[in-house]
Each structure stands twice: as C-alpha cells, then as structure tokens.
C-alpha cells in the first residue's frame, strides 16, 4: 500500500517530510527523557557502590562488576526461581483453559449460547486493580477468613488451613490470581485468531473425516502458532514484572521465608532502601531478559503479517456469507 501512495504522491511527500519528524517528536522526546536516559543512568549506577546506611550515604564509588557478583552469588537465583514457578502455576492452566474455550466458542457445532456474557465475565478480572484483588484474596484466605470458615462448615477441615504460612499455599494463591486475571484476555485473543482461519479449512478437514480433537491439533493449533508465540512471550514479560499480587499478599516479605519473593519485589526493596548500586544491577539483569523477549515479539509480529492479511480476507468473506 505504501508503494502505491509513494508513486502517486511522490513529489508532494518530500515537502511534507518535516511534519513527519515534527509529529513523532513528542513521543521520542518523552521516551528519551522518561525511559532512555533513566535506563542509561540505571546501567551506570549498577557499576557503583552507592547505598544508604542509616543517615550516611556510602559512595558512589566505582566497583566494576561487584554488584553483579553479589547478586548472582546471593539470592537472585532464588527469586528468579520463585518468579518462574509462580508464573508457570498461573500460565499452564491459563493457556490450556484459553485454548479449550477458544475452540469451544468458535466451534459452530457446539452452538454455545450466551457467548458474549461469558466473554464479558471471564475478561472482567483483567481490569481489576491487582493490589485490591490481592488484598481481597488476603482477607478471604486469611486464617479466620471466609474461605476457611466455609471449608470448616463443610466439614472438609477441622481447623483452618493456613494458606499464607505454607509455601505452596501462597505460591498457589499467586498463581491462581494470575490465572484468573489473564485467562479471559488470552481466550479472547486466541478466539480472534481461530476465527481468522478460513472456514473452508475446517470444512475440508471435516469432509476428510477428522474429529473435533484431530481438527484442533492438526488444523487449529498449527495455524494460530504466531499468536501462541505472542501470548507466550508477552505472558513471560508479564511474569517477569510480577509484583503487585505477591507484594500485597505477603506485605512485601515474600513470606513464608521469601519463597514468594519475585525479581521486581527484590528491586522494589532496594529502591526503597535506596541501595542504588544493587537496584541498578537487578534492573540490568531484568532489562537483558526483557530485551531478548522483546526481539522475539518483534519477529512474531512481523512473521504474522502475511498470515494476518489472509485472515482478514477470510473474515471479509465470512461476513459476506
């Protein structure tokens, strides 16, 4: 499309070029001021010993890679592991349920009624304030909260189950909240992807005698792979950012014994105690991880372009029918 316009309006676009720069300038200024320069100074501080001890400020003095050495020899591995485990607890059910729902919602033969209602309901938790949601879960799952009183009233337990004192209880709660907050979003994305597949492919598979399970694994799954990659990677980046839920649920302690402490909670701790050197080193590690994932997203989006066009055509055809 760009080519065509370039040819017909070529002589004009030259004189308008400065407006292009002018229009995109605010974005890049804001990006430079609020993200790029801060990122550079973050990297810079990561090579310095610079913290507060009581009222005294130590540093800044250059220490090379010492902060990174401290980071990797102490707790970073543990917090990375925690983050990964809690992400997996949430993501695995999220992707399974979302795929299942997307397949059901788009299956013409199931004819599920109230699709719109279900979509609205399952997407709702995504818009809820994560900190309020975590606070709610904290109140509900506390030792004498409603969940325990229901469990005891039903005779399932004789004494309260102390969710927040057990490692897998609290990790499980964080995972459950992440699942509830994100499966609706993922379902809607995957549904759009499935609906973009040309109906003739499903028809052909059906005529060839494929059952719903076969169609799902042989037709649907391979065709929505770019979106699956996109969902996986954005979810990983979201997982790396995990903060609000475990922070509020455990009051920033990552209790019990720091088994729910995530990378960002650790960063937050250093930022609050004004240990800039260590905070910088944690940030740089996070930055490198995210940068790799961002590049993957870029390619996922770009390889998707051709697929998206064919899908758009298919959708138009569907609308005509």
């Amino acid at each position: 499309m760009g080519d065509k316009q370039g040819r017909t309006a070529g002589h004009r676009t030259v004189s308008y070029a400065k407006y292009g720069y002018l229009f995109i300038l605010p974005f890049f200024i804001a990006f430079a001021v609020f993200q790029l320069i801060p990122l550079c100074s973050t990297i810079y501080y990561s090579f310095f010993e610079y913290y507060r001890s009581g009222l005294k400020v130590i540093g800044p003095s250059f220490v090379g890679l010492d902060n990174y050495k401290t980071l990797f020899t102490t707790d970073l591995g543990k917090y990375m592991g925690n983050t990964l485990i809690m992400w997996i607890i949430g993501f695995v059910p999220q992707i399974v349920v979302s795929l299942l729902l997307a397949a059901w919602f788009t299956d013409v033969r199931l004819r599920i009624k109230g699709k719109q209602f279900f979509k609205v309901v399952i997407y709702m938790p995504n818009l809820i304030m994560a900190s309020a949601f975590a606070m709610l879960f904290f109140a509900l799952f506390s030792d004498n909260g409603p969940v325990n009183s229901v469990l005891m009233a039903m005779g399932l337990r004789s004494e309260p189950f102390r969710f927040l004192s057990s490692v897998w209880g609290s990790r499980g709660l964080v995972g459950l909240m992440n699942f509830l907050m994100w499966f609706g979003n993922t379902t809607i994305l995957l549904m759009a992807a499935v609906m973009g597949i040309s109906p003739s492919l499903f028809e052909a598979a059906e005529i060839d005698g494929a059952g719903p399970v076969q169609i799902f694994f042989r037709v649907t799954l391979p065709l929505i792979r770019p979106i699956l990659v996109y969902v996986l990677i954005t979810s990983m980046i979201g997982g790396l950012q995990m903060f609000d839920v475990p922070q509020i649920l455990t009051n920033g302690e990552g209790s019990p014994s720091r088994t729910t402490m995530t990378m960002i909670m650790y960063l937050n701790k250093h930022l609050f105690s004004k240990n800039y050197g260590m905070a910088g080193a944690v940030s740089v590690v996070l930055f490198i991880l995210c940068a790799v994932l961002c590049v993957v997203i870029y390619f996922a989006l770009n390889s998707d372009n051709t697929g998206r066009q064919t899908r758009r055509h298919a959708r138009k055809r569907g609308a005509v029918k």
């Binding site: 995109i24 974005f27 890049f28 990006f31 001021v33 609020f34 993200q35 790029l36 320069i37 801060p38 990122l39 550079c40 100074s41 973050t42 501080y45 990677i233 954005t234 980046i237 790396l240 950012q241 903060f243 960002i264 960063l267 930022l271 800039y276 905070a279 910088g280 940030s283 740089v284 996070l286 930055f287 995210c290 940068a291 994932l293 961002c294 590049v295 997203i297 870029y298 989006l301």
Partner: peptide, 24 residues
C-alpha cells in the same frame, strides 16, 4: 527505523529503568 524502534520497545517494562527514573 522509527517504526521498527517503537515495535522493539513495545513490550519493555518500565520497571527496568525505575531507578534512573526516580533519580531523574
């Protein structure tokens, strides 16, 4: 290049530059 750049930074979390941001 501007377009590619924006796509590349699209998923970058703001937390990674939080330290520099606070100092600024």
């Amino acid at each position: 290049p501007a377009f590619v750049f924006i796509l590349l930074i699209m998923a970058m979390p703001t937390q990674v530059s939080a330290l520099g941001f606070l100092r600024l």
